[in-house]
């Protein structure tokens, strides 16, 4: 997919009208993720109950790809266990490296739209910021 098409079909909707942007009451985990070179800056908040991610939200600012990617990630991880969420993160990173299978892409659902970022080295850091931040947050548990 060309970049403009990617923006028009997927990224703009999540960037301009995110479903999960805001501040959470009593999160279990909070972690800030930053791409210093471009100024992408998110604050990821997770609520984990009995090892299940029952709520997730983010605050922050940055390029459309970074913001849309974290919003789509939250769609993916809600209701998942910690291990399932980490497994999805591994699949997303695999997709960005160009090694994901068809099944992986299906599991990533809408987030799989970012697979073409694997051909845009300058935008990889933007796409993985949310996933990377989640991995780090869960690793701290």
């Amino acid at each position: 997919m060309e970049l403009k098409q990617l923006y028009r079909e997927i990224v703009n909707e999540h960037n301009l009208h995110p479903s999960h942007k805001g501040t959470m009451q009593d999160p279990t985990l909070v972690l800030r993720g930053v791409n210093p070179s471009c100024g992408d800056d998110i604050n990821l908040q997770l609520k984990i109950e009995n090892d299940v991610i029952t709520d997730a939200m983010f605050e922050g600012s940055g390029c459309a790809i970074s913001q849309a990617s974290v919003d789509m990630m939250i769609d993916d991880i809600l209701g998942k266990s910690r291990d399932e969420a980490l497994d999805l993160a591994g699949k997303f990173m695999g997709m960005i490296r160009g090694t994901a299978t068809e099944d992986d892409l299906e599991e990533l659902d809408e987030a799989a739209a970012l697979s073409d970022v694997s051909h845009m080295p300058a935008r990889v850091k933007c796409a993985v910021l949310g996933w990377h931040t989640m991995e780090q947050a869960l690793a701290e548990v």
Binding site: G39, G62, I65
Partner: peptide
């Protein structure tokens, strides 16, 4: 529009 998006679209 974030400057990185500006630059990426211009690149295309």
């Amino acid at each position: 529009v974030h400057p990185h998006d500006v630059s990426s679209v211009l690149n295309e």
